[in-house]
């Protein structure tokens, strides 16, 4: 196991009075794919959003505990949350390309953040990494909204890559896609795993087993089990994990 890049320490998250994450401790390893699984409503998205402070935009949300990114607590007062999001990118459940051209979707982030870059080269590099280049290279100035759902999601991944992040968070990135588009994205994630740390929420057990190195199983706000994906899927320690993986509930 490689060294941890994100360490979650005694993290609890509340929506008003309601506790959605309950004193969770977990480490995410660098340049690995970690799958976060668990039944609906167990707090996967809440946890994921807390890793790059996207929870800041949720009203009435309170965070206790620490999230260390490279040994630095991202909830420390002096931390600039925008700076965290530059290093920890995010891909959402529903593809949300910007209503701009394909080209601008890639360049917008680096541009507003004042990165020094060659736009043509960046667009080509990111679209190639996101396995989208061949499909769109002749229509980079077309609206991103004219792409299919699967292409849009790969564009969102390319857009995240353009920021040159260390970590990419993905919240059920395939749930709005058909099996073919899903398998393309899975291939893409396998491609990217040596370059980026990927933390992916998924409801699809086969997907978690196929693409992840490590798996975290959540239930009702608690981290029930965390470990090597093979171990978890073949030989889970907790009964709840086994029940969930074998489809007995959730």
């Amino acid at each position: 196991m490689s060294k941890p890049i994100i360490q979650v320490k005694d993290l609890s998250i509340f929506y008003g009075e309601k506790k959605a994450i309950n004193s969770v401790n977990v480490s995410f390893s660098e340049k690995q794919v970690t799958a976060v699984i668990g039944p609906s409503g167990c707090g996967k998205s809440t946890l994921l959003r807390s890793l790059n402070r996207m929870n800041d935009f949720v009203e009435n949300l309170r965070v206790e505990g620490e999230v260390l990114y490279k040994d630095q607590n991202i909830y420390a007062p002096k931390i600039d949350s925008a700076d965290i999001r530059r290093q920890i990118g995010m891909v959402f459940q529903k593809p949300n390309p910007f209503p701009k051209s394909i080209y601008k979707n890639i360049t917008w982030g680096p541009q507003i953040n004042g990165y020094d870059f060659d736009p043509d080269a960046l667009v080509e590099k990111c679209l190639k990494r996101a396995a989208l280049w061949d499909e769109v290279k002749d229509r980079l100035d077309d609206s991103a909204l004219a792409l299919s759902g699967g292409q849009q999601q790969r564009l969102c991944i390319a857009r995240a890559i353009a920021m040159n992040p260390e970590v990419i968070l993905m919240d059920e990135p395939c749930s709005a896609l058909d099996p073919k588009a899903t398998s393309r994205i899975e291939d893409l994630i396998l491609d990217l795993r040596n370059r980026y740390t990927i933390i992916i929420v998924t409801h699809n057990m086969q997907q978690a087993a196929r693409i992840s190195d490590e798996t975290a199983f959540f239930f009702d706000g608690d981290l029930i089990e965390f470990g090597d994906t093979k171990e978890i899927f073949t030989n889970p320690v907790e009964e709840k994990t086994e029940d969930y993986i074998t489809g007995r509930f959730g």
């Binding site: 996207m54 700076d83 990118g89 995010m90 959402f92 529903k94 209503p99 917008w108 507003i112």
Partner: peptide
């Protein structure tokens, strides 16, 4: 979702408004 997408790129509020919401 557009606003969140922009924030996730490290944008500041005024950048989200001027660069995404206004157009």
């Amino acid at each position: 979702s557009i606003r969140y997408g922009a924030y996730a790129m490290g944008a500041r509020k005024w950048q989200v408004i001027v660069g995404q919401v206004l157009p």
